Simulated assay, not measured.
Amino acid sequence: MNICVFMSAADLDERYTVPAREFATLIGRGGHTLVWGGSESGLMKVVADGVQEAGGRLVGVSVEFLHTKARENADEMLITADLAERKAQLLLRSDAIVIMVGGTGTLDEATEILELKKHGLHSKPVVLLNAAGFYDGLKLQFQRMDAEGFLPLPLSDLVFFAEDGAEAMAYLEENA
């Protein structure tokens, strides 16, 4: 399975790196491929290292203005012209999407992927990996959107909230 992971390129503490590394190991041991933003920085590096060390493949999709931060030993690396093309390529090259902790870029990627799914433009499973309760607030917001009729399909059909990597991988293997 080609698993796209959206996540931060920032250096983060163990609350976030340990669960990310555990999930990365599951990707690699399962013989899966990581499809990611291609960066050799922060959480992106932690996950890529974990996947590679566990025997998985790496497919990076970087963007021109960040190409100097792209991982050199990825199995494949594509450099896109802009962020919109990058997101499109990440979705195109994946069978499933996992959203880890991140800032505004990760949130932008997450909402676009969910919007596309909401409108039936893809049917890939989407998981929010809620490490250390990072997405508790977003989960509440989505539950409110669902309860008040803002979503045209049930929240459970749109996104799965996983508390750890094992739960995320189990969901993906059942739904991809």
Rank of each mutant, 00 (worst) to 15 (best):
T80Y: 15
A88D: 13
F65Q: 02
M44T: 10
K87E: 10
L43G: 02
R86T: 07
G102F: 13
F23M: 04
M1D: 10
D136H: 13
S8P: 07
D95K: 04
L12G: 02
V61P: 04
L153I: 15
L129Q: 06
A48C: 06
A20P: 01
L172D: 02
K117P: 14
E109C: 03
K69F: 14
V61Y: 00
A81G: 09
L92F: 10
G50W: 13
D157A: 12
E167Q: 15
I99C: 11
F6L: 02
K45E: 03
K139A: 07
V51N: 00
R21L: 07
G103K: 09
S123H: 14
L153C: 08
D75N: 15
Q141I: 08
I79V: 12
R15Y: 08
E22F: 12
L91Y: 14
V63R: 07
A54R: 07
V159Y: 06
G102L: 12
A166E: 15
E64M: 13
P152S: 13
D157Q: 11
L91H: 07
P154C: 00
V5L: 12
G137R: 07
V126F: 09
G165L: 01
Q143I: 01
L90Y: 12
W36Y: 15
M169T: 08
A20D: 06
S62T: 15
D146G: 06
G31C: 02
D136S: 13
S156F: 03
L128V: 15
G30K: 01
D108E: 15
A176I: 11
L172K: 01
S8D: 06
M1N: 08
L58G: 02
G55H: 06
R29K: 15
A166F: 13
E14Y: 10
S94T: 06
L12A: 08
F160Q: 04
R15L: 01
L26N: 07
E76H: 11
V46M: 01
C4H: 09
A110E: 08
K139E: 14
E53N: 15
Q52F: 12
L129E: 09
D108N: 07
R86I: 01
I79F: 09
G165C: 03
V61C: 01
L92N: 10
V61D: 00
G60V: 04
F160W: 07
R93C: 00
L92K: 10
L151R: 05
G120H: 06
P19M: 03
L107K: 02
V63W: 10
P154W: 04
L138A: 09
A170D: 14
R57W: 05
E115V: 06
F134P: 00
